[in-house]
Amino acid sequence: MSTSTLTTGLGQRLVSASTDAAAFTALPIISLARLNGSLDDRKALAAEIQDAAVNTGFMYIADHGVAQEVIDAAFDQAKQFFAQPTDKKMLVRDAESFRGFAPLKGENVDPAARGDIHEAWDMGDDAQVMKEGSNHGNVWPPADDLPDFKPTLQKTWDEIMALGKRLFPLFALALGLDEHYFDDKLRRPGHTMRVLYYPPQFGEIDARELGIGAHTDYECFTLLLQHGDTQALQVLNSAGEWVIAPPVPGTFVLNIADMLQRMSNGLFRSTVHRAINRSGVSRYSLPFFFGLDYDAEVAVIPSCVTPDRPALYEPVKAGDYVEQRLAETYIKSDPAQEVEAAA
Rank of each mutant, 00 (worst) to 15 (best):
F24D: 07
E107W: 08
L224H: 06
L292A: 11
L146M: 15
L254H: 02
Q128T: 07
E179I: 00
S18M: 09
S238L: 09
Q50I: 08
P189H: 09
R188L: 06
L39V: 07
P247A: 01
R187N: 12
T251W: 05
G137L: 02
V54N: 05
S279E: 04
F268D: 10
D125A: 14
Q261N: 06
L153K: 13
M123A: 13
K150S: 13
D20K: 03
I256Y: 01
T152M: 15
L104I: 06
V129E: 00
L175A: 03
A296K: 15
V322M: 12
I331N: 11
S285D: 13
D122F: 06
P287S: 08
L225H: 11
H273P: 04
E179F: 01
L267M: 07
N255Q: 02
L254C: 01
A127R: 02
R269H: 06
A95H: 13
P141Y: 10
G37I: 05
I212T: 15
G57F: 10
L186R: 11
T230S: 13
A214T: 14
A83D: 07
A22E: 05
W242E: 02
V195P: 07
D40A: 08
M90E: 10
L27E: 04
D63S: 04
H136N: 05
D295G: 03
Q50T: 07
T156L: 12
Y313R: 13
Q337G: 12
G164S: 07
G240P: 02
V235Q: 05
R283L: 03
L146P: 07
D184L: 08
